Simulated scan of single mutants.
Amino acid sequence: MRYILTLVADRNSTSLSAAMIRRVAEAVRGSKPVLLSEGEAADIPCLEPPDPIAIQQALENAAVDCIVTKTRGRRKALLVADMDSTIVTSETLDELAAFAGVKAEIEAITRRSMNGEIDFAEALRARVAMLRGLDLDALEKTWKQTELMPGARELVATMRAHHALTALVSGGFTFFTGRVAAAAGFDEHHANGLIDDGHTLTGEVAEPILDRDAKKATLLRLAEQRGVKLSATLAVGDGANDLAMLAVAGLGVAYHAKPIVAREARARIDHGNLRAILFAQGYPASAFVTV
């Protein structure tokens, strides 16, 4: 079988039953399913890429993610992940803006930027300018209320245990990526730099800005340094500035993504958490590394 259809249920709202798996396997003319996690995930080998409409009809609109990969080379040697709304549950810049009293204004710009309506670098400069004069302790306060996405530690730890390089690559700021990378276990992190005068933010961001093209370039550079083909790389993100790296990665995953990203990405996680990315690589839950 040349392809694998992976089904992953959102355990907060449903369970992947044997009947569901059987119906989908019959609908896509797949071979015998392989259970990856009881009630949560299963692989269905297929000869041809399965029909998405047939899958959804068989699932009866249950909260189940469906990811198709090729049988060969499923487990990836490089993970490049976005941070905001991907590895952490929030948009750190928006939360930082709350301490400056401009959260609503900055959220509006963030929303347009992540939907691809305005240039990312332009939007970043505009948002940071609105933070001019903000005390630096607001950064620490924002960090204290930042939470990792469910499954983040498992994703990173499991891939590292299988010798993958893991990198956090964000259009956000190094103040946060450094802390998130340490908390989640990433090998390295790359992001933008906020400029300050030792006491407050100046309203400026260091140039050049890490944007969608820089994210793609970082993935390409890390793959070359690691000596792996692009087919052996994995990227995950939710916003328009992630599209370029998702497009070139061997497995590009749109995670609870903005509409423009969900439409263009080859793989989507709309319901479950980051554990789904491990299942999509063929890891059973018994192989997950928990920290």
Rank of each mutant, 00 (worst) to 15 (best):
A41M: 10
G39S: 12
C66Y: 11
G73D: 11
P49V: 15
A62K: 11
A81N: 14
R29V: 08
E91N: 12
A108I: 01
V24H: 15
G39I: 03
V102F: 01
P33M: 05
A104G: 09
K70C: 06
Q57V: 08
S31H: 10
D82A: 04
E38Q: 14
D82V: 00
I106W: 02
D84W: 10
T110Y: 03
V34Q: 10
A25V: 08
A100T: 11
D82M: 14
T92W: 07
A98I: 05
V24S: 10
K103V: 08
S90C: 07
K103Y: 01
A63I: 07
S85F: 08
E26I: 14
R72P: 03
A97E: 07
D65K: 09
E107H: 12
G73P: 07
K103S: 03
L36T: 07
R23N: 07
I55F: 13
K76L: 01
I67M: 15
K76R: 06
P52W: 00
I44N: 01
K103T: 08
R72L: 14
D82K: 09
I44G: 08
E26C: 09
V28C: 08
G101L: 11
L36C: 12
V34E: 03
L96E: 02
R23P: 01
Q57S: 01
G101H: 14
G30P: 03
P50R: 15
Q56S: 15
L93W: 05
V102S: 13
Q56L: 09
I106A: 14
V24D: 01
T110R: 00
M83V: 05
T71P: 02
P50F: 08
L78A: 04
V68Q: 09
E107F: 03
L59E: 01
A104M: 11
L59D: 13
Q57R: 15
D94I: 14
S90Y: 12
V64C: 15
D51V: 09
S37R: 04
S31P: 00
P33Q: 10
S31I: 04
S31F: 00
D65A: 13
G101T: 13
L59Q: 06
V102P: 05
V28D: 07
A97L: 08
I55G: 12
I106P: 04
A54N: 05
I53P: 06
D84Q: 13
A108D: 13
C66V: 08
D43I: 07
D82N: 14
K32E: 15
P45I: 13
R23H: 09
V64P: 00
G30W: 12
I44L: 11
T86H: 11
V28L: 02
L96S: 12
L96D: 03
G73M: 09
C66E: 07
G101A: 04
K70N: 10
A108G: 02
A97M: 09
E95H: 02
A77L: 05
E105H: 10
E38K: 11
E60R: 15
E48V: 01
E91A: 03
T110C: 02
I109G: 06
P52Q: 03
E26V: 14
L96C: 05
A27N: 05
A27S: 03
V68W: 10
D65T: 15
R72E: 14
A98C: 11
L47V: 13
K32F: 08
N61S: 15
S90T: 13
A58S: 01
A54C: 09
A97H: 05
D65H: 01
P33S: 05
A97G: 07
C46E: 11
L47N: 06
A100P: 10
A41D: 00
I109V: 14
S90Q: 08
A62H: 00
G39V: 04
